[in-house]
Nucleic acid binder design. Structure first.
Lengths: 111, 111
DNA sequence: AGAATACTGAACCATATGGTTCAGTATATA
DNA sequence: TATATACTGAACCATATGGTTCAGTATTCT
């Protein structure tokens, strides 16, 4: 490891399709562990682990009332993540531009 | 696993700080396995594995000429990834708006 | 030809991940 | 009070991940 970054945790959380689906589901409305377990045909324990990972990454918060734990989105907005990706894309563009300029220059030297 | 998606592979590739640093380094110029190993104080084998993961995710291509393997960026631009994140952020906004509307409505009913 | 360089692959290691089962605990319902 | 519901935690399992070492192979340099 080079150094710690919240990007590590978030990208890892987003790399699992079940977890992305949980986020999308929670976008429609809050849901309990049982709701999610039913929806994704998984044990309560299994879903709880996924929710734990999302919580660790700050993408989900949970609150237990009575015997039901309700999961909702937040507080992270993925701003750092989209910023990193945006920067990467701009860098790619720049490299393309340089390559293009280089190719043009090379072509000009031909008859 | 719910289903396969390229997002799985890419987000997983991006979740490691060394690999993100390799991408950033390759943004400045192409580099050999040895270059990267030196830069990140890692064995050739270790770096080769990371490059393999990036290659698998389509973020890096490599070409071996003589005994040197040169790594460069491409071909993936992270368009799907930024699209997913963008959609997530828009969904979050919407939820916020609904919550806001709900709170306003509730407030109006007070004296 | 001989030596140095650059990578490669197999094997190994410790830890993490994505799941399960099973035996609880706490809460709500009849 | 008894029973059903909802979750929790420990233990386990198979596989993946992030590294290493070591013994090659292929190229290049002297």
């Amino acid at each position: 490891m080079v150094q710690y970054s919240p990007l590590d945790t978030t990208f890892a959380a987003l790399s699992d399709p079940t977890r992305r689906a949980v986020l999308e589901r929670l976008g429609r409305s809050d849901a309990s562990i049982s709701d999610l377990a039913g929806l994704f045909a998984m044990t309560l324990t299994g879903i709880k682990k996924h929710v734990g990972v999302l919580e660790e990454a700050g993408l989900v918060t949970t609150e237990k009332v009575g015997r039901v734990r309700t999961c909702r989105l937040g507080p992270r907005r993925l701003d750092e993540e989209s910023h990193w990706i945006g920067g990467y894309q701009r860098m790619l563009e720049q490299r393309m531009d340089h390559l293009e300029a280089f190719l043009e220059e090379t072509t000009e030297t031909l008859p």
